[in-house]
Design a protein around this nucleic acid. Structure first.
Length: 453
RNA sequence: UCCAGAGUAGCUCAAUGGUAGAGCACGCGGCUGUUAACCGUGUGGUUGUAGGUUCGAGCCCUACCUCUGGAGCCA
C-alpha cells in the first residue's frame, strides 16, 4: 500500500516493503546506480531513492527525468548521506508517465511570472506546493474557528438578483444569446442577474434568525483593477452576529486574525520556514508578533490627526472627511504603530448605506483592520438596525428602497443590533505566507484579460 | 483606467549603431554515496508585433501587444 512521503519521513524505524508514488524532482546517476528525489506534494521535502542498475525497471532510467511520475517499491532505511534522515533503497522502479525534454519546470529557481504562465504545473514547485498546502490548512482553520464559537455556516447564493450592493462592478449572468435584444423578462430568471459581490445582505438575514453565522465562498468583482491585491474571483469570509455592536465586531476580527496566525505557526511550520527562507524573511516573526500583541484601535478622527502631525509628505494630502489612501493606511500600520491597526468610526459619506449612524450624526460604525505589508485585510461594521434611519441612509445614497424590500423587512420584524465583517481569504494567505501577489495564492487566478486554464 | 519600467535560446540573463553570447535545461561521452552533483562535448535564435531612420538596428524613432511595479477602486 502506498505511503505518503510526509509519513515516511516521520517514521521512527526502518521499514521493509514501502511503496512510494510521486514525481521526480531530480536524478543523479552514478556508474552502477542512480539517486532519485521524489516528491508527492504531501509535504515540502521529497524523499531520496537509491536505485541499483540491477533492479527491475532500471532499464527505463533514461526516461526517469525531472517531472516524470513513477512508483518505487523498496526498503526505508537510514541514509548515510548528510542531508536526509531516510532514503528508500529501491527493489523495483515503475515508470508511470514520462516527462519529455520540454518539461518546463527545471530543478532551479523560476520567476513567479514564468510560473504563472504554467499555472497547471506550478503546484509541482516547492513554493506553490507550500502555498496551497497552507491555503488548505487555513480554510480548515476558518471553519474550526467559527464552528468552535457556535457560528453557523451559511451558503449564500452565488447568483444574485440585487444589482446594487454597492461593492463594485458585477458580472452579468444570462442565458440570452449574444446580440439578442435586451429583454430581461425573457432571460432565465426573468430579470437581470449577476455573480455575487458579497454575501453580507443574505448573511444578515440568517444572523437575524440563527444569531451567529458565517459565510465562506467565492465572490466576483468585474472591476478593471490591475494590482497585486485584486482578483476578479476570490474567496471571502463574512461573519455576521446578531445582538452585537462595533466593539464585539472589532474583538472578533482581532481574535480571528490572531487565531489564523497561531494556526499557521502550529500546523504549517515546515512551509512557513520555507517562506522565511525564500519569500519573506520576516514572516514567522511577524506572525508571532500578531499572535502576542494586542491590535491598536484608533478612531478615524484621531488617525487623521496622527497623519496630519506626522511631518511626512504624502502624495495625497490628508483630508478630514475623505477615505484614507493606501499610503496613509500603510503609514499607520507600518511606521506609526508598527502593529495591526483597527480604524473605526468613519465619516458617513464615504461608507455604504447599511452602516449604523453614530449619535454624532456624522460618523458610522465602520471599522477596517490594517496589517503591515498588505493594508486593509478586513472591512466591517455594525449594521443600521433602525428602519427609519436605514431608509434615510438609502435616501442620502440615492438608492431606491423598493430594491431592498426583503432587506428592510429584517428591520420591520424583530430587528436587533447586529454586526459583521468581510475578509478576503487570499489577502489573509498573502499576509500569512509573505507572498506578495494575489495571483500566486489562488490556484488559477482570474484577473482582467486573463482566464487561461 | 493612469504613471513608470521591461520584452534577446525552453528558463535566467549578457551584447559602444558594426559577425547575437553565457549559465542552467536538453542530447552524447566520462566519473563519483550523490544531493540545485561534477568534468568534457554538442544541439539550440524571424531579438514581442508592425512600420520608420541609417551604408548598417537587439540597440535610435512611432504605434500596438503582453508582462511587472506603483496608483485609483476595494476584500
Amino acid at each position: 500500500m502506498r505511503t505518503l512521503i510526509k509519513h515516511l519521513l516521520a517514521t521512527a524505524e526502518p521499514r521493509d516493503n514501502v511503496l512510494v508514488q510521486g514525481w521526480i524532482r531530480t536524478r543523479r546517476d552514478s556508474k552502477g546506480f542512480s539517486f532519485l528525489e521524489i516528491n508527492d506534494g504531501s509535504c515540502l521535502a521529497g524523499i531520496q531513492v537509491v536505485a541499483d542498475a540491477a533492479i527491475p525497471g532500471y532499464a527505463d532510467i533514461h526516461k526517469l527525468a525531472t517531472g516524470a511520475s513513477l512508483e518505487v517499491e523498496g526498503r526505508l532505511a537510514a541514509s548515510p548521506g548528510g542531508k536526509q534522515k531516510w532514503e528508500v533503497q529501491a527493489a523495483r522502479l515503475t515508470l508511470l508517465g514520462e516527462a519529455g525534454p520540454d518539461y518546463p519546470l527545471q530543478k532551479k529557481g523560476h520567476t513567479l511570472e514564468f510560473l504563472r504562465s504554467i499555472a497547471h504545473l506550478r503546484p509541482r514547485s516547492n513554493l506553490f506546493g507550500a502555498v496551497f498546502r497552507v491555503r488548505s490548512r487555513l480554510a480548515y482553520a476558518v471553519h474550526e474557528f467559527f464552528q468552535s464559537r457556535d457560528f453557523i455556516h451559511v451558503h449564500t447564493p452565488i447568483i444574485t438578483g440585487s444589482d446594487c450592493e454597492g461593492a463594485g462592478e458585477m458580472f452579468r449572468v444570462t442565458t440570452l444569446k449574444p446580440g439578442a435584444a435586451a429583454h430581461p423578462a425573457a432571460d432565465f430568471f426573468g430579470k437581470p442577474t449577476y455573480l455575487t459581490v458579497s454575501g453580507q445582505l443574505e448573511g444578515e438575514a440568517f444572523a437575524c434568525a440563527l444569531s451567529n453565522i458565517y459565510t465562506f465562498g467565492p465572490t466576483f468583482r468585474a472591476e478593471n483593477s490591475n494590482t497585486a491585491r485584486h482578483a476578479a474571483e476570490f474567496w471571502m469570509i463574512e461573519p455576521e452576529m446578531a445582538f452585537c455592536d462595533l466593539q464585539g465586531d472589532m474583538d472578533l476580527a482581532e481574535e480571528f486574525i490572531k487565531a489564523m496566525a497561531r494556526h499557521a505557526l502550529e500546523h504549517c511550520a515546515e512551509d512557513l520556514a520555507f517562506f522565511s527562507r525564500f519569500v519573506d524573511p520576516g514572516v514567522e516573526e511577524r506572525l508571532r508578533f500578531v499572535v502576542e500583541r494586542p491590535f491598536v484601535r484608533v478612531a478615524y478622527a484621531e488617525a487623521i490627526k496622527i497623519l496630519q502631525q506626522a511631518g511626512k509628505r504624502f502624495e495625497f494630502p490628508v483630508d478630514d472627511g475623505q477615505n484614507l489612501q493606501s499610503e496613509h493606511e500603510r503609514f499607520l500600520t507600518e511606521e506609526h504603530f508598527k502593529s495591526p491597526t483597527t480604524v473605526f468610526n468613519y465619516p458617513r459619506q464615504i461608507k455604504p448605506f447599511y452602516m449604523r449612524l453614530n449619535d454624532d450624526g456624522r460618523t458610522v460604525t465602520a471599522m477596517d483592520v490594517l496589517v503591515p505589508g498588505i493594508g486593509e485585510v478586513i472591512g466591517g461594521a455594525q449594521r443600521e438596525e433602525r428602519l427609519d434611519q436605514l431608509l434615510d441612509n438609502m435616501k442620502s445614497h440615492q438608492l431606491d428602497p423598493d430594491d431592498y424590500r426583503w432587506y428592510t423587512d429584517l428591520r420591520r420584524h424583530g430587528t436587533v443590533p447586529h454586526a459583521g465583517f468581510g475578509l478576503g481569504f487570499e489577502r489573509l494567505i498573502m499576509f500569512l505566507t509573505g507572498v506578495s501577489n494575489i495571483r500566486d495564492v489562488i490556484p488559477f487566478a482570474r484577473t482582467p484579460g486573463n482566464a487561461e486554464f
